[in-house]
Design a protein around this nucleic acid. Structure first.
Lengths: 334, 334
DNA sequence: TTGTACGCGTTATCAG
DNA sequence: CTGATAACGCGTACAA
């Protein structure tokens, strides 16, 4: 292993001179610089990043805490993570940390100087991890929201608006009996932010449009949405539309409607969360509230970089919900 | 920041004694051990991982090189990466590296001592990166295969068998005019392993069953498979089945068949690559060659850990293709 | 059973 | 413009 000392010896200078020549942090005579450059290339010297970071007290690493697959919203694409990695490129590397409910592992990673910052997702309204991190003053960014967000850096999708827009769209088409899929109660108990805001949006819509939505518990997978849809249409014969905003589980819903001989949108309209990449191609194609998951990753990374650069102002980005109308919604047949 | 010296001073011992007490690498008297433990907890000492690693000459990090999203097979789920991260847990952290065609960035990461090992994917048959890594002797594992695999650690899905089984299944049902979607020629030029092995499988099936398959270029996205399917059924009126093994692009295919008023499987059978999580729920559900992407990530990580533990024997794991019959395949109507 | 001294590779500081 | 020295925090051979 070639070290800076080897280069210094070879070039007949002091190690510190080599360091300065390479970093450009102070002026070096042309003659010496050339000798050093030759030494570097002839010996094949590559600076040791660990020693460098130790000296600087940094790790140039930021970690993303990924929930276990069972609780990820189905269909979450890999570009959610790679978008974050690419946004950091050059300046930091992105590492993955397994999820844990408590903050101890997270704090430890900071204390061990293994990470300079953290991106958290799957945020609960009262999140123990975040209380602890706030107290510690380490840099972190949320993908999601807690109840009290003052002073927090975060980016989130506007689930409240998404839920509201979904109902508004259906009401404007003439629907009155609308069902929606919600998290299972044991999951709701976790107080996940997106479930909460979605609920808020539904309530706003109920009040504004004077209707009563029908709630049905489900889960995050197609198999859950399939069963939940069966239950829903079994119990509510007059239902004319379904909204499902938790994960891209429309295949299960479409299948359940199909198996029950209900045509979409003639017998039942459908609005889902989803991205154009998939929702455009189903039969029928699905009216969605588009979620740009990769944008969440990218923006989270950018917010964190700003924070690490010393900008202490808390920024909160709410990605707007946008309804894209496709074939799955129409006026209810009378 | 609390260092080992602070602890030593506080406990009234030498730093090395603290180090030994914590690592257990030599016997410590009960009395001193207790003093040290108290000091550690009272001061809140956490060892600095960077200094530790610098001393040991390790990074305890392994990197996964992810291709840009444009060339990832569509529908690649996030658990492909998280499965790898979890397989490493505790002993190493997983970091992500952006893709580059040449090996220089990869070698540099090793030389900078930022990584102890590497997981590569999106492997070409003649892959410049791999030649360079082989020569360098750094530990790495492939998800995929090159032409010459001696001495390489790798895990791959058996695309050859998958292609063969797809055709075999269709032939046994009575199909003779079968089309398949392939990569676009400019992508084939890259010589990706999976495209090659798939081709091999098709050729074996052609020879064995005495038929001529109809090739159609496509891409990795639903929008590509949609167009390709249109072209294919436009040109080959007698076609009775389609096979598509590159990415989970069945939605585009189903939609193209639907738009052309072809019923699946009555007018055209369909076999795809896919996972039960999605293929079960389409209408009709799709006969697939199941790919366990998360297994690929997990196994790659495990192979690398073995290699890092000193096991130099090259292991090559080929995940078997398994055909799961669903609603999209049936005998051709005469 | 414990302490001393040195090295890992880098960079900031101070002196020249 | 350049060099010597100390320090970042830790692990371990050697000495006691």
């Amino acid at each position: 292993m070639i070290t800076i000392k080897d280069v210094a010896k070879y070039a007949g200078v002091a190690p510190s001179t080599v360091s300065y020549a390479l970093s450009g942090k102070r002026a070096i005579s042309e003659k010496v610089r050339r000798r050093i450059e030759r030494a570097v290339s002839e010996l094949g010297y590559v600076p040791n990043a660990q020693a460098h970071n130790l000296r600087l007290g940094l790790s140039r690493t930021i970690a993303m805490v990924h929930p276990p697959n069972e609780i990820m919203l189905e269909g979450t694409s890999i570009d959610f993570i790679t978008a974050a990695a690419e946004a950091l490129e050059a300046s930091h590397t992105l590492s993955l940390m397994p999820y844990s409910k408590t903050a101890d592992k997270l704090l430890e990673a900071f204390q061990q100087r293994r990470i300079d910052g953290l991106i958290l997702m799957h945020i609960a309204r009262h999140d123990e991890r975040i209380e602890a991190l706030k107290a510690s003053n380490y840099p972190f960014v949320l993908i999601g929201r807690t109840e009290y967000t003052e002073g927090l850096n975060l980016v989130d999708f506007d689930f409240e608006e998404a839920a509201y827009l979904a109902i508004k769209h259906l009401v404007e088409l003439g629907h009155r009996r609308i069902g929606y899929l919600d998290l299972a109660s044991h999951e709701r108990a976790e107080g996940l932010g997106y479930a909460f805001y979605m609920q808020q949006g539904f309530e706003r819509a109920q009040a504004e449009f004077g209707i009563q939505l029908i709630r049905q518990e489900a889960g995050r997978r197609n198999t859950d949405s399939y069963k939940a849809t069966q239950t829903l249409i079994g119990q509510e014969k007059k239902l004319t539309a379904i909204v499902a905003l938790l994960g891209a589980t429309y295949l299960g819903i479409l299948r359940a409607l199909h198996d029950a001989k209900k045509h979409v949108p003639q017998d039942c309209s459908l609005v889902c969360l989803g991205s154009a990449a998939a929702a455009r191609w189903t039969i029928p194609s699905i009216t969605t509230l588009d979620n740009q998951l990769s944008d969440l990753g990218k923006i989270a990374a950018e917010l964190l970089l700003e924070r690490l650069a010393g900008n202490l102002e808390a920024k909160q980005v709410l990605l707007p919900a946008q309804l894209v109308r496709r074939e799955s919604t129409a006026a209810p047949s009378s």
